[in-house]
């Protein structure tokens, strides 16, 4: 039997959502036996030429040009796109930087931090350019399932995966919803 394929990516986030995913206990075994995980940061996969997948999952918001590209590509290849976490859903903690210009942010991060000596802002063609603002995923691509939380609880992730595997588009119930 061919199993439905799943790809997950980690964009502007802290990996907390993937940690929550790995924290699902026996639900994890249960779900892994019913899907084929193609690409995921937990397999340390670095090439984002996704296969066609039944479900694409994004952790993290979008804050640089590369992330825009990845999100668009994954959307294209996914029948259903689910986003995990407040960063992906609302913008989350990354949006604290929206109060400043990207120049100010880089200046502070690479030059002015207290522990930095002779710092410099790195510039290289392989480094993606920061967007003016860190933004939620649905500002760039259509999202089908939202799982807010910082991070979402393993229960919330398991619930949504199970619902999707049974052919339904879930909306998180009140008692599983939290924004922190």
């Amino acid at each position: 039997m061919k199993l439905p394929k799943i790809a997950t990516v980690w964009l502007e986030g802290c990996s907390g959502c993937h940690m929550s995913f790995l924290d699902m206990d026996e639900d994890l075994l249960n779900i892994f036996s019913r899907v084929e995980l193609t690409d995921s940061p937990i397999t340390d996969f670095k090439d984002f030429n996704f296969q066609d997948v039944a479900l694409g999952i994004i952790e993290g918001g979008i804050a640089n040009e590369e992330q825009v590209e990845i999100a668009k590509k994954l959307r294209e290849k996914s029948k259903i796109l689910m986003v995990w976490g407040d960063c992906a859903v609302f913008g989350g903690i990354n949006t604290l930087r929206n109060a400043f210009s990207t120049q100010e942010i880089l200046q502070r991060g690479y030059i002015e931090t207290e522990s930095t000596v002779n710092g410099a802002i790195p510039v290289h063609e392989s480094l993606p350019v920061l967007l003016e603002k860190a933004l939620p995923v649905n500002r760039f691509v259509t999202v089908d399932v939202y799982v807010p939380g910082c991070p979402p609880s393993p229960d919330a992730i398991a619930y949504c995966l199970n619902e999707i595997l049974q052919g339904r588009i879930p909306v998180l119930p009140t008692d599983m919803m939290h924004f922190d």
Binding site: F90, N138, V143
Partner: peptide
């Protein structure tokens, strides 16, 4: 926040301004 949970507001359909 509790109202957002109660009404299952799992994302925003309007764009945040991010004005500070």
């Amino acid at each position: 926040q509790s109202l957002a949970y109660e009404l299952q507001m799992d994302h925003l359909t309007v764009h945040s301004s991010f004005d500070t």
